[in-house]
Amino acid sequence: MKKYLRFICLALALMCVVFCAACGGDDTSGDNEGNSEFDTFYVKFDNVTIKLGDKADGVIASLGEAQSRTEIGDCGGLGAQVKYTYASFDLYVLESKTDGNIIDQITFRDDIITTPEGVYIGMTAADAKTKLGDPTSSTDKALLYTDGKYTLKLTIEGDAVTEINYITN
């Protein structure tokens, strides 16, 4: 057994070397641009989950009658932007023959609807930050939480949240 011992510890040593070389070689975890661990880009309203990037048909059916629906065709007839107006929020959907109907943007209209973390229009910017954590980036007029694909944008006036939007980048 003794003479095989050399091989075993050699193999172990080799493994560690290869392990680091391989790990260093290609960092495939692909961390997002922002450092915030915020990653919930959906809203729950009347226990219907409305998530950016999801297929819209089911959501619209379960949300019930919208106050209004306006459709604006893309020039070139390749698809259309559709705006569903509900009591507490506007829902924007991108319709296209090739990719189907995708939820593209949610705009809050009143303070009844809240984000899953409990942020609503009228709340102070400070309270919003405590609930959501530090934003990925911020300007004097807005706080942005993004994962590179979707963004939660809080428009700030004075120190109150005046608008809340979930936007597809």
Binding site: F7, L14, V18, A22
Partner: peptide, 21 residues
């Protein structure tokens, strides 16, 4: 055979680490 074993352990070691860890 011992010399051969070095070669086998080294190369199959890499394959094992990369593919099966």
């Amino acid at each position: 055979f011992h010399i051969l074993l070095w070669g086998l352990v080294l190369n199959f070691g890499i394959l094992a680490v990369l593919k099966y860890t």
